[in-house]
Amino acid sequence: MTQALAFPSPYSVPSLESYIHTVNSLPMLTPDEELNLGRRLKADNDVEAAHTLVLSHLRVVVNIARGYTGYGLPQADLIQEGNIGLMKAVKRFDPERGVRLVSFAVHWIRAEIHEFVLRNWRLVKIATTKAQRKLFFNLRSMKTGHGHLSHEEIQNMAKQLGVKPEEVTEMETRLSGQDISLEPVGDDEEYHYGPIAFLADPHAEPDQQLEAEESERMRSDGMKLALDSLDDRSRRIIEARWLMEKDSATLHDLASEFSVSAERIRQIEQKALQKMKTIMGAGATA
């Protein structure tokens, strides 16, 4: 079997624009070429055939990843996760079924991107079941306007997606919550108080306040313990990527800082996050 070959990733080129230009310039395969390559891969585990199949479909991943830009995650990360899905699809592709690879791969590409979004988007804590995940990723596309959903729309969505109407309402609130301004928005007297001034705290009892403060302290201590367990480079990467209030660093920024590839930074980041998750989980059960 031929030695494994590399293919471009969003982290192996100077910029995302360069990557997109590169993959869009790669030749597409004819149905006969795809069939022959698929047969070579299936019969002989031909790595060169797999490499060509992946290369010719990288542009598909870019197009799919563009549909997930509204979740505030780096486009390069979305593309990289989609590429993983593409490689899984190529590995499982059966050319004898009469289905083009692109049709088969779309499912795998989207599945990997979905998992990445759900792992990293902090607002999606309710998306824990298959139906709720479907709701999360379809709510925006199913809405017919920019306003809030009507009662009839909520009922119809709930029925189509197999969730409760209350879950549709809660998800819509979570997705649109950042558009609400809680602070005063003007200097006029009628705007002196913003909505935040009229929000009641349902947990205002002293014992509940103490419990909340203790819980927050434990989370903070757990985070500090997890960060302290990292080496200096890993800690710098986590803080720059996840703990900045604004202007978080990109993989390319950190790659330049440490004189390594962006892909290496991504690997260090993922390993550090997993280590922190393990430490914080152990602390929560102690």
Rank of each mutant, 00 (worst) to 15 (best):
T52N: 09
V54L: 07
V54G: 00
L55T: 00
S56E: 06
H57D: 04
H57A: 02
H57C: 02
L58I: 01
L58S: 00
R59I: 03
R59K: 12
V60G: 04
V61M: 01
I64H: 02
I64G: 01
R66V: 11
G67I: 13
T69R: 14
G72A: 10
Q75C: 12
A76M: 08
I79C: 07
Q80L: 14
Q80M: 13
G82Y: 04
G82D: 05
G82I: 13
I84D: 04
I84E: 06
L86T: 09
L86Q: 08
L86M: 11
M87Y: 04
M87V: 09
K88R: 15
K88T: 11
A89C: 03
A89W: 00
A89L: 03
A89N: 02
K91E: 06
R92C: 03
R92N: 05
F93G: 06
F93N: 05
D94E: 12
D94A: 09
E96L: 12
R97D: 06
G98H: 07
R100G: 00
R100A: 13
L101W: 00
L101C: 00
V102L: 01
S103M: 04
F104D: 05
A105L: 02
V106F: 01
H107Q: 06
H107A: 12
H107S: 10
W108Y: 15
W108L: 00
W108F: 14
I109D: 01
I109N: 00
I109C: 05
I109S: 05
R110N: 09
A111E: 14
A111Q: 14
E112Q: 07
H114V: 14
H114A: 11
H114L: 10
E115W: 07
F116E: 07
F116Y: 15
V117I: 15
L118T: 05
L118Y: 09
L118C: 06
L118N: 02
R119M: 09
N120P: 13
W121H: 15
W121K: 12
W121N: 13
R122D: 12
R122G: 08
L123E: 05
V124M: 03
V124W: 03
K125H: 12
K125D: 11
A127T: 04
A131F: 01
Q132S: 07
R133A: 03
R133T: 09
R133I: 08
R133K: 13
K134G: 08
L135H: 03
F136M: 14
F137H: 03
F137A: 07
N138A: 11
N138I: 04
L139D: 03
L139R: 04
R140A: 13
S141K: 11
S141L: 14
M142T: 08
K143S: 10
T144S: 11
H146V: 15
G147Y: 06
G147N: 08
G147P: 05
H148L: 15
L149F: 06
H151G: 04
H151E: 10
E152D: 14
E153I: 01
E153F: 00
I154K: 03
I154V: 15
Q155N: 09
M157Y: 02
M157F: 02
M157G: 06
A158L: 12
L161D: 07
G162T: 00
P165E: 02
T169A: 15
T169P: 05
E170M: 04
E172S: 13
E172G: 10
T173D: 10
T173K: 07
